[in-house]
């Protein structure tokens, strides 16, 4: 089923984004990042317009969007908590923090709390490997997580 046509305000804003990125070599990722920054996800209805502007097929564009972990097809919660699951954080007790966060939020990886407050995503390395366990809340990095610091982080996110 084709996606619904884009509402006028999406189309106007998208047009501006496409114009901003005109002339770039390899513009697809910068455009998708800009779209996600605008709407918090990559709305389905933007895809036909982006594909047309870049002269690629919708299938190809869908392939690109779905390949990358960063691009979401639906909005996330109001806050995005990413917890590092990689080896260096594991070696510093990261598993305990992962489990505590999942239990406290009541969601598994990629899940969003029932009130739409927090989305929990795994991340594989934030480059804070000597001061783990590490996490990122809405783009801000936090390290040396223990139960107390996690608690503070979660309450900051309203959970």
């Amino acid at each position: 089923m084709p996606p619904p046509p884009a509402p006028a305000e999406i189309e106007t804003r998208l047009h501006a984004i496409l114009t901003e990125h005109a002339g770039l070599e390899g513009p697809v990722l910068p455009i998708l990042h800009a779209v996600q920054a605008e709407w918090g996800h990559v709305p389905q209805e933007t895809l036909p317009l982006i594909a047309e502007a870049l002269n690629i097929s919708r299938a190809e564009l869908h392939g690109v969007v779905s390949f990358y972990h960063d691009f979401r097809d639906a909005p996330a919660g109001r806050h995005m908590l990413k917890i590092c699951r990689a080896e260096a954080c594991q070696a510093r007790g990261g598993k305990r923090i992962e489990d505590a966060a999942r239990a406290k939020l009541g969601v598994d990886w990629h899940g969003t709390t029932a009130d739409g407050g927090v989305t929990l995503e795994p991340v594989y390395c934030l480059g804070l490997c000597a001061t783990g366990p590490a996490a990122m809340l809405d783009g801000r990095v936090v390290a040396r997580l223990d139960e107390t610091r996690l608690e503070a982080l979660l309450s900051e996110a309203g959970a």
Partner: peptide, 11 residues
């Protein structure tokens, strides 16, 4: 694209 766990020299 320094994705290796345990590395942060590039960063």
């Amino acid at each position: 694209d320094e994705g290796d766990s345990g590395t942060f020299a590039d960063r």
